[in-house]
């Protein structure tokens, strides 16, 4: 399997709004902590180390 870099979200605007809403009223530190937890949850969903390393490369 290779990293998906084509659009794959079923509702991009809905996802983005939910993401921003999750950070509502959080200060910078709490937001960063939320993001860290979120990345770990999503990483588990992906599972495959090679895919995760490819995603890290895209983000870097």
């Amino acid at each position: 399997m290779t990293l998906k870099l084509d659009p794959n979200l079923s509702d991009p605007d809905g996802f983005y709004a939910a993401l921003i809403d999750a950070h509502e009223a959080l200060d910078a530190e709490a937001s960063a902590a939320l993001n860290a937890r979120l990345i770990l949850v999503l990483a588990n969903q992906i599972g495959d180390l090679e895919l995760l390393k490819a995603a890290l490369d895209v983000a870097k």
């Binding site: 998906k4 870099l5 084509d6 659009p7 794959n8 979200l9 991009p12 605007d13 996802f15 983005y16 993401l19 921003i20 950070h23 959080l26 910078a28 937001s31 993001n35 895209v58």
Partner: peptide, 22 residues
Amino acid sequence: TSRRFRDAVLALAADHAFARPL
């Protein structure tokens, strides 16, 4: 935080199609 995500979308969208619908 909202600005940081917005800027991340803009930064990724130039090279990666997945970010463009956002």
